[in-house]
């Protein structure tokens, strides 16, 4: 029990450090322009990398996941509220799995 708790603290530490170091110390540095451009692209690169191929194994079948992805994309194109995008995709997958 004690050693498990020490493991949790160790895991907390190696999880927290990569989150902490750049926020505390990168702010103070004057970064070169290319570095700023690089960092400004990170959000879009991360989002795309997170979506694909992870989405394919997010539900029980790749086809229902793809259907959910399409529903989310269509809703997102119309710029509806993010909560609606999320709920719409869940209902889409649920419907797809229930009907097929």
């Amino acid at each position: 029990m004690m050693s498990l708790f020490l493991l949790v603290l160790g895991l907390a530490l190696v999880t927290y450090l990569p989150r902490l170091v750049p926020l505390l110390w990168l702010k103070e540095l004057a970064l070169p322009a290319y570095m700023k451009r690089f960092l400004s692209f990170i959000p879009y690169a991360v989002l795309a990398s997170l979506i694909f191929p992870g989405i394919l194994s997010s539900t029980t079948t790749a086809s229902s996941a793809l259907f959910g992805g399409v529903v989310a994309t269509v809703l997102a194109v119309f710029r509806v509220n993010l909560v609606i995008v999320v709920i719409g995709a869940v209902i889409g997958v649920y419907g797809f799995q229930t009907i097929l």
Binding site: T59, G68, G69, V71, A89
Partner: peptide, 14 residues
């Protein structure tokens, strides 16, 4: 079906 939720959020943001 809830497994799609966070991916849908990423799509909605991107």
């Amino acid at each position: 079906s809830m497994g799609i939720a966070l991916y849908a959020m990423f799509i909605g943001l991107l």
